[in-house]
Amino acid sequence: RHRTTFSPVQLEQLESAFGRNQYPDIWARESLARDTGLSEARIQVWFQNRRAKQRK
């Protein structure tokens, strides 16, 4: 699998969602996937990585 590159618009949507809830449930992730055009799995990994980045 190649590395996913996120567009500025996608990142804005993801960061906005992260600001509201750092642990989105499956319904929120699937909604974000539809809105961004990404797969739910990529959304899930993005949130995992974003939480790890915040802990540093």
Results as ranks from 00 to 15, higher is better:
Asn21Gly: 06
Val9Asn: 01
Ser39Lys: 07
Leu38Thr: 10
Val45Gly: 12
Asn21Met: 05
Ala52Glu: 12
Phe47Val: 02
Leu14Tyr: 02
Leu32Tyr: 00
Arg42Lys: 11
Ala28Tyr: 06
Arg3Gln: 09
Arg3His: 15
Arg29Thr: 13
Asn49Arg: 11
Arg50Gly: 00
Val45Trp: 11
Thr36Ser: 03
Leu11Ala: 07
Leu32Thr: 00
Lys53Glu: 15
Thr36Val: 11
His2Phe: 13
Asn49Leu: 07
Glu40Asp: 12
Glu30Cys: 10
Asp35Arg: 11
Ile26Met: 13
Leu11Arg: 07
Glu30Pro: 00
Gln44Tyr: 07
Arg3Asn: 07
Thr36Asp: 00
Ser39Pro: 09
Glu40Asn: 03
Gly19Trp: 08
Ala52Lys: 11
Val9Lys: 14
His2Glu: 15
Arg51Tyr: 01
Gln44Ile: 13
Arg34Ile: 04
Ser39Tyr: 02
Ala52Ile: 07
Arg20Trp: 04
Ser16Gly: 09
Asn49Gly: 09
Asn21Glu: 06
Glu40Ile: 10
Trp46Tyr: 03
Asn21Ala: 05
Arg29Ile: 09
Phe6Tyr: 06
Ser31Tyr: 08
Asp35Asn: 08
Val9Arg: 15
Arg51Glu: 00
Asp25Met: 03
Gly37Glu: 08
Glu30Ala: 13
Ile26Trp: 15
Leu38Ile: 09
Thr4Lys: 08
Gln54Leu: 13
His2Ile: 14
Ala41Cys: 11
Leu38Asn: 02
His2Val: 12
Ile26Glu: 08
His2Asp: 13
Arg50Asp: 00
Leu11Ser: 05
Glu15Ala: 03
Ile43Lys: 00
Asn49Ala: 13
Gln44Leu: 14
Phe6Lys: 05
Ser7Thr: 08
Arg1Cys: 05
Arg51His: 04
Ala52Cys: 08
Ala41Asp: 15
Gln54Ser: 11
Gly37Ser: 05
Pro24Asp: 04
Glu15Ser: 04
Ala41Tyr: 08
Arg1Glu: 13
Arg55Met: 13
Phe6Trp: 05
Trp46Asp: 01
Phe18Glu: 02
Trp27His: 15
Gly19Tyr: 06
Phe18Met: 01
Glu40Pro: 06
Trp46Glu: 02
Glu15His: 03
Thr36Ala: 04
Asp25Ala: 03
Gln13Tyr: 14
Thr4Ala: 09
Arg29Cys: 15
Thr4Ser: 12
Leu11Met: 08
Arg50Tyr: 00
Arg20Thr: 09
Phe47Glu: 00
Arg51Asp: 00
Asn49Phe: 05
Gln44Thr: 06
Arg3Asp: 15
Ile43Ser: 01
Arg20Lys: 13
Glu40His: 07
Val45Thr: 12
Ile43Trp: 01
Phe47Tyr: 07
His2Gln: 10
Gln54Trp: 09
Leu38Asp: 02
Arg51Met: 05
Glu40Met: 10
Arg55His: 08
Gln48Asn: 07
Ala33Ile: 03
Ile26Cys: 07
Gly37Gln: 13
Gln13Met: 13
Leu38Phe: 02
Leu38Val: 11
Arg51Leu: 08
Phe47Gly: 02
Gln48Ser: 13
Glu15Phe: 00
Leu38Cys: 10
Asn21Ser: 08
Gln44Gly: 12
Gly19Leu: 08
Gln54Glu: 09
Gly19Ala: 12
Lys53Thr: 12
Leu14Gly: 00
Leu14Glu: 01
Leu38Met: 08
Glu12Val: 10
Thr4Val: 09
Leu14Val: 01
Ser39Gln: 13
Glu40Trp: 03
Ala33Asp: 00
Ala33Asn: 02
Ala41Gly: 11
Trp27Val: 15
Ala28Cys: 08
Asp35Phe: 08
Gly19Pro: 02
Arg51Val: 07
Gln13Ser: 06
Trp27Asp: 15
Ser31Ile: 10
Val45Arg: 12
Arg29Ala: 05
Asp35Thr: 14
Val9Met: 11
Leu32Met: 07
Arg29Tyr: 02
Trp27Glu: 15
His2Leu: 08
His2Ser: 08
Lys56Met: 12
Ser16Asn: 10
Arg20Asp: 07
Leu11Gln: 12
Arg55Ser: 13
Gln44Arg: 14
Arg55Asn: 07
Gln22Pro: 08
Val9Asp: 06
Ala41Lys: 14
Ile26Leu: 10
Arg29Glu: 03
Gln54Arg: 05
Leu38Tyr: 01
Thr36Glu: 00
Glu12Tyr: 03
Gln48Cys: 13
Gln10Ile: 14
Thr36Asn: 01
His2Gly: 07
Ala52His: 15
Leu32Ala: 01
Leu11Lys: 10
Glu12Thr: 08
Gln54Ala: 12
Gln44Glu: 11
Ser39Ala: 10
Tyr23Ile: 11
Arg34Lys: 11
Arg29Asp: 02
Asp35Ser: 13
Ile43Glu: 01
Ala41His: 08
Thr5Asn: 07
Ser16Leu: 13
Ala52Thr: 12
Asp25Gln: 04
Ile26Val: 13
Trp46Met: 00
Asn21Lys: 02
Thr4Met: 13
Glu12His: 03
Val9Tyr: 07
Glu15Lys: 04
Thr36Cys: 07
Arg20Glu: 08
Lys53Trp: 06
Asn49Trp: 12
Arg29Trp: 03
Gln44Cys: 10
Arg29His: 01
Leu14Lys: 00
Ala28Gly: 07
Asp25Cys: 02
Glu15Cys: 03
Gln54Asn: 13
Ala41Pro: 15
Thr36Ile: 08
Glu40Lys: 09
Gly19Thr: 10
Tyr23Met: 06
Arg3Glu: 15
Glu30Arg: 12
Ser39Met: 02
Ala33Leu: 01
Glu12Pro: 01
Gln13Thr: 14
Gln10Tyr: 00
Phe6Glu: 10
Leu14Cys: 01
Lys53Ser: 10
Gln54Gly: 12
Ser39Phe: 01
Arg34Met: 09
Phe47Gln: 00
Ala41Ser: 14
Thr36Gly: 00
Thr5Ser: 09
Gln54Phe: 05
Gln48Leu: 08
Gln13Pro: 01
Asn49Lys: 14
Pro8Leu: 07
Arg20Gln: 11
Arg42Trp: 11
Phe18Cys: 02
Ala52Ser: 12
Glu12Gln: 15
Glu12Cys: 06
Ile26Thr: 08
Ala52Asp: 08
Leu14Asn: 00
Ser31Asn: 11
Glu40Gln: 07
Arg42Asn: 12
Asn49Pro: 00
Arg34Gln: 07
Leu32Phe: 00
His2Lys: 14
Asp35Met: 12
Leu14Ala: 00
Val45Glu: 13
Arg50Lys: 11
Gln13Leu: 09
Arg29Asn: 03
Ser31Arg: 13
Gln48Thr: 11
Pro24Thr: 04
Asn49Tyr: 05
Ile43His: 00
Glu15Met: 03
Gln44Pro: 03
Tyr23Val: 07
Phe47Lys: 00
Thr4Pro: 05
Ala41Asn: 08
Phe6Gly: 04
Arg3Leu: 14
Asp25His: 06
Gly37Ile: 02
Ala41Leu: 09
Gln48Pro: 01
Asp25Leu: 02
Lys53Gln: 15
Ala41Val: 11
Arg51Pro: 00
Gly19His: 08
Pro24Gln: 02
Ala33Cys: 08
Phe18Leu: 01
Gln44Met: 12
Asn49Cys: 09
Ala33Gly: 06
Thr4Leu: 12
Thr5Leu: 05
Arg50Trp: 00
Thr4His: 13
Ser16Thr: 10
Arg1Ser: 09
Lys53Ile: 12
Arg29Phe: 04
Phe18Ser: 00
Glu12Asn: 04
Asp35Gly: 13
Thr36Gln: 00
Ala33His: 03
Asn49Val: 08
Arg51Ile: 06
Ser7Asp: 05
Leu11Asp: 06
Ile43Leu: 03
Ser31Leu: 14
Ala41Glu: 12
Gln44Ser: 14
Arg34Ser: 06
Ala52Trp: 09
Phe18Gln: 03
Asn49Ser: 11
Asn21Tyr: 06
Ser39Arg: 07
Leu14Ser: 00
Ala17Lys: 02
Glu40Cys: 07
Ala52Val: 09
Ile43Phe: 02
Ser39Asp: 14
Leu38Gly: 01
Ser7Phe: 12
Phe6Val: 08
Arg50Ser: 03
Leu32Asp: 01
Ser16Tyr: 06
Gln13Asp: 05
Gly37Lys: 11
